[in-house]
Design a protein around this nucleic acid. Structure first.
Lengths: 165, 165
DNA sequence: TTTACTGCAAATATTTTGCAATATC
DNA sequence: GATATTGCAAAATATTTGCAGTAAA
C-alpha cells in the first residue's frame, strides 16, 4: 500500500474539512483509510462489509454522506455504470485509466491508453471550472459477442430443420 | 425536424428487429418517432408525458424495455448523471458533444470541442468491440462557484463580528 | 399457432430524509 | 454550549419482474 498517497489523502481531507468549517470525525478518517486500500473500484456494499469486518460500525447513511463529501473534496470519483451498479474509486487512480463498459452484460474493464488521455481539465470554459474527466467506452465484450453469435447460429439451425420437417 | 435522420433511425430499428427475429410493434416505432424529435437530452418521465400528451398510452415498463432495446440497437445512449437523474439521447446527437457535470448541483451542460473528440471507437482492443464513447467533465458550475464564495464571505464576516463582541 | 410484447401491479434495490442521541469545536 | 454528525428506520425514487391478456409473425 502506498502510505504516501494515503497521508496525502488525509491532508487533502483535513484541508477541505477545515476550509469548510466542518468536523474531523473518526468515521471520516477511518472510511478514507479503508478506501485508500482499494486497488480499484469499490461499491458501497463492499466498503460497508470491509468496515464491518474490522468491527468498525458505520451506518449506510453515514457512508453515503461521507462519500459525497469525499467527492466534493475531490478525493474520489463516482462511476455510474448502471443505476444498480454505482462504483467509487480514488480520483488519483481513476485518472490513470479509461473504462470499457459492455452494453449487454454491464461488465466493466479498465484500459490504460495514453492516446485517449484528454486535456479536458486544462480547458478554459466559460461558466464552468473543470476538475476531473472520465472517458467511458461502450461496446460489446468478447463473451457477449460469442454468446450472441452462438445464439444466432442456433436459431438459424432451428429454422433450417423446421423447413426440412 | 430532420426527417432524413428519422427515417434512418426507423431503418436502423427495423434492421435490428429483423436481425434479432423480434417484432415490429406500433409502440416501438411511435416511441422512436417521439425520441427523434428531442433536440437534446430527455428522461423517461418527459418521454412518457410527451407520449401521453399525444394520447399514445404506453406503460413505463414498455418504455424501459424499449429504451433498452434502442440502446442495444445503437440508436440512443444513456447518460447516468446521478442515480436519480438518468438521461437518454439520440446517439447521433451524443456523438457531437461532450458533457459538463457540476459536482455540487448536478447541472449538465453540453460543449462542442473538436480537440476533445477521441478516436476511441477506432481502437483495436482485445476482447472488446467499441461502439460509442462518452466524455464527462466534472467540475463546478459558475452558479455553485458564486454560491460557495458568497457563503464563505458571509461565514468570515460572522467570525469577525463574533471576535469584536 | 406460437410466442414476443404489453400493461398493470407488486417487488426489489438504492439513496435520501427526519429525528433523537452524540461528539466536535 | 452550539451545532455538525451519526444511527436508525421510514420514506422516496427508479427500475425490474411476474403474469395474464394481446397481437405480430
Amino acid at each position: 500500500m502506498d502510505t504516501k498517497t494515503h497521508s496525502d489523502l488525509q491532508e487533502q481531507l483535513t484541508a477541505y474539512i477545515v476550509g469548510k468549517k466542518l468536523r474531523k470525525t473518526e468515521e471520516r478518517y477511518t472510511i478514507l483509510q479503508q478506501i485508500s486500500e482499494y486497488p480499484g473500484h469499490f461499491d458501497i456494499i463492499s466498503l460497508h462489509e470491509k468496515l464491518e469486518s474490522l468491527n468498525f460500525h458505520v451506518s449506510k447513511a453515514t457512508l453515503y454522506n461521507n462519500l459525497n463529501l469525499f467527492i466534493e473534496a475531490g478525493l474520489i470519483v463516482r462511476h455510474f455504470i448502471t443505476p444498480q451498479n454505482v462504483q467509487y474509486e480514488l480520483r488519483s487512480l481513476a485518472e490513470t485509466h479509461q473504462h470499457l463498459i459492455c452494453t449487454y452484460c454491464g461488465d466493466v474493464k479498465e484500459i490504460r491508453n495514453q492516446a485517449l488521455k484528454t486535456n479536458a481539465c486544462n480547458l478554459k470554459l466559460r461558466r464552468f471550472t473543470p476538475e476531473f474527466s472520465s472517458l467511458y467506452i461502450y461496446g460489446t465484450c468478447s463473451r457477449c459477442t460469442y454468446r450472441m453469435n452462438r445464439d444466432r447460429r442456433k436459431r438459424e439451425k432451428q429454422e433450417t430443420q423446421k423447413k426440412i420437417k
